[in-house]
């Protein structure tokens, strides 16, 4: 990094009347500030060699798609379970069974 850098030349400016000394240009997110081409300083720095991809970032979006599908699937499953629980418990009530006479009519007949 450091060896690619040359310190700026200590060149005095010779301002010409009526001409802009510094130009600005936006290129996408980058903003370039430069002296007008005829007096541009030639120092160039390569701030970064090929940068590694940021940690966790998945540019393809595939992981997000998988996470989204899984999360929705789990969400729908939970909703179904919740609905089943609520419906099963709040809908309707059960009557007690009709007590049946024991087979022989005696107490012993009811012994299982």
């Amino acid at each position: 990094m450091a060896d690619e850098l040359r310190p700026p030349g200590d060149r005095p400016e010779q301002a010409e009347p009526g001409r802009r000394r510094i130009g600005r240009a936006r290129v996408g997110r980058a903003v370039g500030k430069a002296r007008m081409p005829e007096r541009a300083v030639t120092d160039v720095i390569r701030p970064e060699t090929a940068a590694a991809a940021p940690v966790f970032v998945d540019p393809s979006g595939g992981r997000r798609r998988r996470v989204r599908r899984t999360a929705y699937a789990i969400g729908v499953l939970l909703l179904l379970i919740l609905a089943a629980i609520w419906l099963s418990q709040l809908s309707g009530s059960t009557r007690a069974p009709e007590p049946r006479p024991c087979a022989s009519g005696s107490a012993a007949g009811c012994r299982r």
């Binding site: 997110r29 980058a30 300083v41 120092d43 160039v44 701030p47």
Partner: peptide
């Protein structure tokens, strides 16, 4: 001092 970008911007940056 002004430093100019020496490498082209990464491809994913919109132009």
């Amino acid at each position: 001092m002004t430093i100019y970008r020496g490498t082209p911007p990464p491809a994913e940056e919109s132009t």
